[in-house]
Design a protein around this nucleic acid. Structure first.
Length: 787
RNA sequence: GCGCCAGUGGCGGAAUGGUAGACGCGCUGGUCUUAGGAACCAGUGGGCAACCGUGGGGGUUCGAGUCCCUCCUGGCGCACCA
């Protein structure tokens, strides 16, 4: 028995499931049911990504409590999922907001801390001054808070971080092992990690005891360096400028309307060129990133577009060190090195190698690798999340709790007013006597980013009641997840964090698993036409009626304009509600439609015609099986065998739209040929194949025809039956199709050619030409080449 | 700007280098009628035809939607990453 762990990304309990969930879970359910019929040991759990901001916002808005709101939503959504007839392991259910989940996350936090993978440091964060909270990058829209619209400030706060950068190299390299992941997702992760190979070079500041370290991928162009630029946030800046001056520069940068426009401020210091005996100026420049490399660059205007632009603007020298025409400047490609005594005549790769050796020899630089990926800031100044198990003393020191002191539970009685973190003002929760030191201590009031919750839930599913975070034996046995199905929007964050967690836990617990998800499948979104009144108000599809080909709003009779099909979204109201659809069309038709028109990884347009034709297919199949007579044709067995084979292949490839085509093809045949099966064994095969896709109908028909509640096992496929003996052989003359002839597989070329030349169409084609060659691809095609 | 992916009938989409358009939607004509959100039958790439047809142009091949080069268009991602 093979294990198959099939998982769909668990939902945030927002209140209602939407069609996107339905599509996601139907796809997963088809896989899970198929593997069960195959006799595999299938794990197919479901849970709730239950911490997060919307609960707090809803609590404030509707005067409820985040926990009550969340539990209520879970209950409602679970009912909705049950109506979808999904074969889920509900006994594995978990919600990340439950003590039984997050207390183990606190254990993992302690593990990460002890392993040196969790640490605290000051960091710049997005601060919403109105809500008094930190916002995630994706919650900042055009520099404003997504909820308050307040201008977001950059603020330094002491924050907890996970050291994901320790795994940058492995996270990058292991992408190659993920052969069953979409290339697109792997590319996105690769770019996100952003590995650059180059060198770090020291530039001495003349007359001072300071130096600037600079990372570059082009140390071969060092002779062309004519200026240095550093970020305004560089740590050296405060040494040479006062607070006022720095603020002025920052303001000037932020006032810059076109933020691509290069801007620099000359500092009153100079650097010594590491090889040449010349001085080069140092600028603070707006285009230097403070969070990449060392926050400093050397400018080589001749061979870098940005440096060139800057040099032109500030009239800095441009020194060519790679052979090219002046018209090609800035020239950033490979070429012969010139004007560089140590490197002349070399090309890029050798020059880089040689100059790094030189720097290392002189002890003023070294080979270096840089990553765009930065450590993961996990502190959130919010109530509704997993408390971070840390105590602070009055002297400013802190202590990470021990596992025996867990759990740190969230207090229920909080005062939520939307202003800052409710834990901060909950004095009786916050202030404690430390049991170890008997000193007054304060709990950490930040909670963990909810991406932490979703970074290991797939492990907890293996035993949701285990008294440790997970059972390592089960992890080794059941991970990785065989098929992980969800939206492309998680291509980077969730999937990268989960990969990091798996590797960190592997190292801490000595597990044998390095990657959490063996196969990743990203389903496409569901789109729908949009509707608007002439006043510009969005209108839901179900409110739109058609009268004489014109669209109107049903109640008000306003004229409605139809817009393009777009991703279903509440804001444009172009949604259909799963509850309505299930009520009107039933679960089988809904499941059919979810996989019908488009391949599952592409977008699916919701149309009334589409769901209706799915409903018609359901009725057609039920009607077909309602005739109580049996009448097989000679090729019936073969046709059904082909059907089984094709359905299986298509389920395994996630080509579920082709499964629907297979079903149509089969029933077209059965009805056209007037084949009746009733309770013949062959019906059973068909019903088994239908079961993963439309389980309710399949089960009902099985009960009716076979008086049994057992669907049975997936059929063994008789491959002999799949072989065609009669074939239509295409005949080409000079590569163009002329006709096809009916013949048997394994024909003798010589014999068949004789008959081919007797066919009029062929005769006419050849007539006054000479046959110079005949290509016979046995049983596939014959091509007669004439001069 | 860089990277990735994709361009096939009116539409969604099928095609291990070997009959392009499976299957569905829509449409046309017809049948039946316990007038249905049905069902059934026939047809449906273009052209009167020879023929022409998979974004355009080259190439490889007996043969290209499929492979190679190039350009165009669209989508997605990243975006001053040194």
């Amino acid at each position: 028995m093979q294990k198959k762990y099939i998982l769909e990304m668990f939902p945030y309990p927002s209140g209602n499931i939407h069609m996107g969930h339905v599509r996601n879970y139907v796809i997963g359910d088809i896989c899970a049911r198929y593997h069960k019929l195959k006799g595999d040991e299938v794990i197919h759990p479901m849970g709730w990504d239950a911490f997060g901001l919307p609960a707090e916002n809803a609590a404030i808005q509707f005067n409820t409590h985040p926990q009550d709101w969340t539990f209520e939503n879970i209950k409602n959504m679970k009912d909705q999922l049950k109506k979808l007839d999904l074969d889920l392991d509900w006994d594995r259910e978990l919600a990340t907001c439950n003590e039984g989940y997050y207390q183990f996350q606190q254990e993992l936090f302690i593990d990460l801390y002890n392993a040196g993978l969790a640490y605290k440091k000051d960091a710049l964060v997005n601060w919403d001054p109105e809500d008094q909270t930190v916002l995630a990058n994706e919650q900042v829209i055009d520099g404003k808070g997504w909820r308050t619209g307040a201008l977001v400030e950059q603020k330094v706060l002491s924050q907890w971080f996970f050291k994901i950068t320790n795994y940058a190299e492995e996270l990058l390299n292991d992408l190659d092992k993920l052969t069953l992941w979409p290339e697109k997702v792997k590319t996105m992760q690769k770019n996100w990690i952003g590995k650059s190979i180059g060198a770090e070079i020291e530039f001495q500041i003349i007359g001072k005891d300071d130096q600037l370290n600079i990372f570059t991928t082009r140390p071969d162009t060092i002779y062309g360096a004519t200026f240095i630029a550093i970020s305004v946030n560089h740590k050296l800046v405060s040494k040479y400028l006062n607070e006022n001056e720095i603020e002025k520069i920052k303001k000037s940068f932020s006032d810059n309307i076109d933020d691509k426009e290069k801007q620099g401020f000359l500092l009153n210091i100079k650097c010594k060129h590491p090889i040449l005996e010349k001085e080069i100026p140092v600028y603070i420049a707006n285009f230097v990133l403070d969070n990449y490399g060392e926050g400093a660059i050397f400018g080589c205007p001749a061979h870098d577009e940005r440096d060139y632009e800057f040099a032109i603007k500030y009239n800095l020298p441009i020194v060519k060190v790679v052979q090219c025409n002046d018209s090609e400047l800035p020239f950033s490609h490979d070429g012969e090195i010139i004007n560089s005594p140590l490197l002349n005549g070399l090309r890029k790769t050798e020059a880089i190698k040689k100059i790094i050796e030189y720097f290392e020899d002189k002890n003023i630089g070294k080979a270096s690798i840089n990553y765009k990926l930065r450590d993961w800031g996990v502190s959130r100044q919010r109530y509704w999340g997993c408390p971070i198990p840390v105590l602070y003393y009055e002297d400013g020191t802190y202590r990470v709790l021990e596992k025996s002191e867990l759990p740190v539970l969230l207090p229920y009685d909080v005062n939520l007013n939307g202003k800052g973190n409710a834990l901060l003002s909950h004095d009786s929760w916050r202030k404690v006597i430390c049991p170890k030191t008997n000193k007054i201590a304060f709990r950490e009031t930040d909670t963990l980013d909810t991406f932490v919750d979703s970074s290991w839930y797939y492990i907890r599913f293996l035993d949701n009641k285990f008294d440790k975070p997970f059972d390592d034996k089960k992890v080794n046995e059941y991970l990785p997840v065989d098929k992980y199905i969800g939206g492309i929007e998680h291509a980077i964050l969730h999937l990268l964090y989960s990969r990091f967690f798996m590797k960190a836990l592997r190292d801490i617990y000595n597990l044998s698993v390095s990657e959490p998800f063996k196969q990743l499948f990203t389903q496409g979104m569901i789109t729908h036409k949009t509707y608007k009144t002439q006043g510009g108000e969005w209108v839901m599809p179900k409110e739109v009626i058609t009268i004489n080909g014109e669209l109107f709003r049903d109640k008000t009779k306003e004229f409605i304009q139809e817009g393009p099909s777009e991703k279903m979204s509440k804001s444009k109201k172009n949604v259909v509600e799963p509850d309505d659809i299930l009520q009107n069309y039933g679960i089988d038709a809904t499941r059919f439609f979810m996989i019908s028109d488009s391949p599952p990884d592409r977008e699916l347009e919701w149309t009334d015609e589409g769901i209706q034709s799915s409903k018609n297919l359901v009725r057609r199949i039920e009607r077909y099986f309602s005739f109580d007579k049996t009448n097989l044709k000679s090729d019936t067995k073969k046709m059904v065998e082909k059907f089984v084979y094709s359905i299986e292949k298509n389920i395994l490839n996630f080509s579920l739209n082709k499964c629907v085509a297979d079903i149509y093809t089969l029933f077209n045949y059965l009805e056209k040929e007037k084949v009746y099966l009733s309770n013949h064994e062959i019906s059973k095969k068909i019903l088994i194949c239908l079961y993963p896709i439309v389980p309710q109908m399949s089960l009902n028909l099985t009960k009716k025809l076979f008086k049994s509640n057992e669907i049975g096992d997936w059929p063994y496929i008789n491959t002999d039956l799949l072989l065609e003996t009669d074939i239509n052989l295409p005949i080409q003359v000079s590569g163009k199709l002329v006709t096809t002839i009916k013949t048997k597989k394994g024909y003798v070329e010589k014999e068949i050619l004789e008959s081919i030349y007797e066919i009029d169409k062929i005769k006419n084609k050849i007539l006054d030409r000479k046959v110079i060659r005949v290509i016979n691809v046995q049983d596939k095609i014959i091509n007669i080449i004439t001069n």
